[in-house]
């Protein structure tokens, strides 16, 4: 028996919005520690890794490890049927081929339930090597989204260059070029408004704007984003979900021909 109760269904809504354009379907691996998802997009250019801790749920029960193959488009349809502050419960029997999703309003005057068919997905688990990243940049997630959106007007590729002075985002294309430089914030009122850089070695890598913009769909989940980079390895774009867990996106860099 698997059962998880979330006080704000809006959180799961935002999570699905953050992954549905990269993945059509995904396996949700449930265990007593929580729910995990790891999947690459069809082109094997990016990977989504999500972890929701059991302690982040109002109630969480998972008697036996359970892998649920979910069509994300179907789940998005169901999530459209609830309000952000509805309480939701997801439930499945062991070896079930369906998942039940229930919503209740806070005053419990409206209850609804939806049953969704589960899928058998061939899933490959990837080993992601432990990496000591040369640069770790923490910045407001809205600022990162703004930069990706603005610069993708000019070119398909975004160069991210991190030095101890700051981080520079650059692109160029038919109409010209664009650069945005952010320096480390010296003073800030709130931690989430600052830009901080931990750097052991300068790094400069090129990434596809299209994917970065898709990762930015996670912006509503977190005020901060963490970018981790090392030479010639995938970029990690991480959004912490308050009290619940995190979503990490990995993106293979573009390579000089």
């Amino acid at each position: 028996m698997f059962e998880a109760r979330l006080l704000k269904s809006g959180q799961l809504k935002k999570i699905l919005e953050a992954i549905k354009e990269l993945l059509k379907e995904a396996t949700f691996d449930c265990s007593d520690s929580g729910i995990q998802l790891q999947a690459m997009d069809d082109a094997h250019v990016s990977l989504v890794s999500m972890c929701l801790k059991s302690t982040g749920f109002d109630k969480f029960r998972c008697d036996r490890n359970l892998s649920m193959g979910i069509n994300l488009e179907s789940m998005v349809k169901i999530m459209k049927c609830c309000s952000n502050d509805d309480i939701m419960t997801i439930k499945a029997q062991d070896n079930a081929d369906t998942l039940t999703i229930m919503f209740e309003t806070k005053n419990q005057e409206k209850m609804s339930d939806y049953e969704m068919k589960l899928m058998n997905l061939d899933q490959e688990h990837l080993g992601i090597p432990e990496t000591n990243y040369s640069c770790i940049i923490k910045m407001p997630s809205s600022e990162f989204a703004r930069i990706c959106r603005d610069l993708s007007q000019f070119g398909d590729s975004l160069v991210i260059a991190c030095t101890k002075e700051g981080v520079k985002f650059s692109t160029s294309g038919d109409i010209g070029s664009a650069n945005v430089k952010l320096s480390q914030t010296s003073t800030f009122d709130k931690e989430e408004e600052g830009v901080t850089i931990e750097m052991t070695q300068a790094v400069c890598l090129t990434f596809a704007c299209r994917y970065l913009n898709l990762f930015c769909k996670a912006t509503p989940l977190s005020t901060q984003v963490i970018l981790s980079m090392s030479g010639d390895v995938p970029l990690v774009v991480e959004y912490q979900i308050e009290e619940l867990g995190c979503i990490r996106y990995y993106l293979a860099p573009k390579i000089e021909e």
């Binding site: 990016s46 990977l47 990837l126 080993g127 090129t206 860099p253 390579i255």
Partner: peptide, 14 residues
């Protein structure tokens, strides 16, 4: 020019 890398060359299937 640049070409898009793939993750398969970085991560291994467990």
């Amino acid at each position: 020019g640049t070409t898009q890398g793939r993750l398969d060359s970085f991560f291994t299937v467990i």
